[in-house]
Design a protein around this nucleic acid. Structure first.
Length: 451
RNA sequence: GCGGUUGUAGCUCACUCGGUUAGAGCACUGGUUUGUGGUACCAGGGGUAGUGGGUUCGAAUCCCAUCAUCCGCCCCA
């Protein structure tokens, strides 16, 4: 016998956890649908060629690869072996588990381009897998919930996703704010400094601002090729605090006509303008030109949602990408997406006790009896109730009456219906309210009424 | 990939300096109660101390390795 355990970084979800997870999933799903997004699913397994090269070298390392079936060594020779595990891997593995939902979606759009109505709004809630080292809030198998709108450049889509963010977190009663920025603003900043070549380095470093502070970030910038003078100029921007409009003004002066930067600011302004009419309190939408975001495929607006009352990393993220599908032979397909970090949302809601009371068992009543006669009668009754839409179950064994009571108590089933000699003789049912302890002798019809 | 933490019953944990039969709470099983759960009382089952090696008369305890875990870094959402 072996000691049972989960594979590293994976979790089981018991009925209690599932009740909470399903609750959050359903809320998000309802909002997706309300906004006109359509569900799709894609396979867990993709061709490795679809996945590799999309997430950078680091990402390729974190892909779970599936060993080819059959005698996967038969076509290999010693030379292949000597080339090292990196190349060797791709000779014995042609499939892998998806790493996110965006790349499979891009493949999907490219393959179905002629059948989809553009602009296409899709949502997808499925697990993804990463061979990462697990830590707090970080798993090897976890769900992503993505909503994307592709085939439209309109900034109204950005405004729609921000509104979606508002409505989802309103429903969950989770206080969150959404930080927005534009890649073009960031590009404008490095452009003004004359350092456009180091855009990616700039983004990677500035992204850590929250975590490690400006001093450490400026050190990193210098390490990555920026001068101390650059940092002095940047420091002026970094320390500036103000509302959205003040920040836009500040940057406008800084850009002094720089084209990219200006374009970014106009995007921000227009989106803020749109959402001011969406009927939500938008004081939690914050323009922050210090927001970067790791993913390299974003080209326009970027978002990042965070919980207000608790530091927990980001609970939503997304942005505009201009070339989603060009890797799959469909150029110029622009889209914008928002991903809800559902695992973290659940963790945050748990930590803040935001879950409403969710019944673990759906059953309203459990039938109990003493002998075979009662068992048969109970089986009849329970199915009658089910036909009427009353979720109910029957204790399957003839046992001490204590057993079904303990069972109902454990499962928090609110009523137990007892069928004993007396009840059967009178054609009645003894219904016990497990919470109050109250017990009544009822006919089947009376029982149905009282449930 | 790097650094650290922890690993004892199903779960949460205790066991003084290395010393006899490794304990507790919760959970589980049975009973007090053969027509009643959630409270109480009584009794009971359950352990290769992660795994492998070493030191020692003697190891849960010390050392080494290995696996797992959690935390941090890199990275990522």
């Amino acid at each position: 016998m072996q000691k049972p355990s989960n594979a590293r970084g994976t979790r089981d979800f018991g009925p209690k956890e599932m009740a909470k997870r399903t609750y959050v999933f359903n809320v998000i799903k309802n909002h997706f649908e309300q906004f006109g997004f359509q569900a799709i699913e894609t396979p867990a397994i993709e061709n490795l060629s679809t996945l590799t090269g999309k997430y950078g070298d680091e990402g390729d390392q974190l892909l779970f690869k599936i060993l080819n079936s059959g005698d996967y060594l038969s076509k290999l020779n010693e030379q292949d072996f000597k080339e090292g595990s990196k190349k060797f891997t791709y000779k014995v593995s042609e499939k892998g588990l998806r790493y996110d939902l965006t790349v499979p979606f891009a493949r999907f759009v490219s393959m179905n381009r002629n059948d989809l109505a553009f602009p296409f709004r899709r949502f997808q809630m499925q697990p993804v897998w990463r061979a990462d080292r697990p830590q707090k809030g970080r798993y090897r198998e976890f769900y992503q919930c993505d909503a994307d709108i592709v085939g439209s450049n309109s900034l109204l889509n950005e405004a729609e996703l921000i509104t979606l963010f508002q409505s989802v977190f309103n429903s969950l009663r989770l206080k969150a704010h959404l930080v927005i920025n534009s890649r073009k603003v960031l590009a404008g900043v490095v452009d003004v400094l004359g350092m456009s070549d180091l855009f990616v380095d700039f983004a990677v470093a500035i992204d850590k601002l929250d975590k490690i502070g400006w001093d450490a970030v400026s050190n990193e910038l210098v390490e990555r090729g920026f001068s101390k003078d650059h940092c002095v100029i940047l420091a002026d921007l970094i320390v500036f605090e103000g509302n959205n409009l003040a920040k836009i003004d500040k940057l406008r002066q800084f850009f002094n006509g720089n084209e990219q930067g200006e374009a970014g600011l106009r995007e921000i302004e227009q989106v803020l303008d749109f959402i001011s009419k969406n009927g939500y309190d938008n004081s939690n939408i914050i323009f922050d030109y210090r927001l970067a975001r790791g993913l390299s495929y974003y080209t326009g607006l970027i978002f990042e949602g965070k919980a207000k009352d608790i530091p927990f990393g980001s609970i939503a993220g997304g942005g505009r990408y201009d070339n989603l599908t060009s890797d799959f032979g469909l150029p110029n397909m622009s889209g914008v997406g928002l991903s809800f970090g559902i695992e973290r949302i659940i963790d945050v809601m748990e930590a803040l006790s935001l879950f409403p009371d969710i019944p673990v068992s759906g059953s309203k009543v459990l039938f109990a009896y003493f002998d075979q006669e009662g068992q048969i009668q109970a089986f009849q009754y329970v199915n009658e109730l089910r036909r009427l839409g009353i979720a109910s179950e029957i204790y399957p064994e003839i046992a001490k009456i204590k057993k079904p009571f303990e069972f109902a108590d454990k499962k928090k089933i609110p009523f137990v219906a007892v069928l004993g000699e007396q009840e059967l003789a009178e054609n009645k049912i003894n219904l016990k309210n497990m919470r109050s302890g109250e017990q009544k002798l009822l006919t089947l019809n009376e029982l149905i009424q009282s449930l």
